[in-house]
Design a protein around this nucleic acid. Sequence first.
DNA 1: CTATTGTTTGTGAACGTTCACTCACAATAT
DNA 2: ATATTGTGAGTGAACGTTCACAAACAATAG
Lengths: 193, 193
Amino acid sequence: MEFTKRQQEIINTAIELIADKGIQELTIKNLSQKIGIAESAIYRHFKSKLDILLGILSLFRENKEHMNRQLTEMEATATDKLRHMLLKRFAYFAANRAVAAVIFSEELFRNDHRLSEQVYQIMQDNQQVIIGIITAGQQADEFRDDVSAKEMSFMITGALRLIVTQWRIAEYTFDLEQEGKRLWATIETLVKK
Amino acid sequence: MEFTKRQQEIINTAIELIADKGIQELTIKNLSQKIGIAESAIYRHFKSKLDILLGILSLFRENKEHMNRQLTEMEATATDKLRHMLLKRFAYFAANRAVAAVIFSEELFRNDHRLSEQVYQIMQDNQQVIIGIITAGQQADEFRDDVSAKEMSFMITGALRLIVTQWRIAEYTFDLEQEGKRLWATIETLVKK
DNA sequence: CTATTGTTTGTGAACGTTCACTCACAATAT
DNA sequence: ATATTGTGAGTGAACGTTCACAAACAATAG
């Protein structure tokens, strides 16, 4: 296990704090209070606040790699893979609001080069997976091939991010998964041959 | 004039500071040093730091309303309007990196209800304009009408935002306007009848 | 033209508060 | 008995903001 129980608790609490009120709410004081230990106890588990942020990103990364592995191992048409990926991610964010509030906030991780580098890598990895699916779909004659796979991936990922962001700003007042289905319907119509 | 010379200088310097190193670089001390006046002098022009942030948003809003007014008054096909809007915005961000770094960072404005309300309004206004153009294009038989205008607007705006964000994270190492043209080519191919 | 008054814009020192982090020490678990 | 985990008090630095005060300039009065 990469993180101890306590470390996981700290990371999850940190995500919740950020999700609730933004990055400036993530202080060692708030963190320790929410967990119910003293401030100094935090430093038994992480040597600095930066390491907690790195922990958050490492959790995101693990999660995303798991999703992607599942996806690439899947035996399915490109259309099914793309739909599966999209709807799965909407479902995940719907069930994990705190993560949804943090994961697209690049601003949170600009303090440090290590942080922004991680964010960039996660984004790039993700784009590659989607481009791969679209290209495969084009070669299998499922998707139209008169459009750039890269630009399509910008549109799909961009729409996903924008919808989740608006959902958060609107304080979760619409059904995210349903909106995800609507988005998929449009994508499918646009992209299929 | 809504803002005095000095106020505009403060707002622009604030945008530059945020663009450079993120929100935590925007302190009254850094701001005053960069301008070359004492910290306390800032308070001759804004009664609080929050008002400076509100000033930034008000500048964004003004700018966007100007663009939108220009667009709605334009005599052109929906296709031309959509292309014009998209390329214009890419050009604007290419020429105003500091603004590009700030404008999509909703996280910056989560401190205060007035701030996040403003951000939400700007996003909504923008979406309405794009939905309007697409709907008009569908009615004019320029665009395919078997897709939702709203979902299309998510994809277009989402792609724009994602590309600009990646451009910033990649430290401006690719040609943003060229990428904008590539995006437009894909959008046009997908959406035209 | 000069003296008086007011306004704007600036300054440096200080304010109370919060921040991340440290340390000597105590409790707990193995 | 030793290692792990927790504590409370304390650190210096940074934060936004306020304050008394001064220089510069304009407006007005004699």
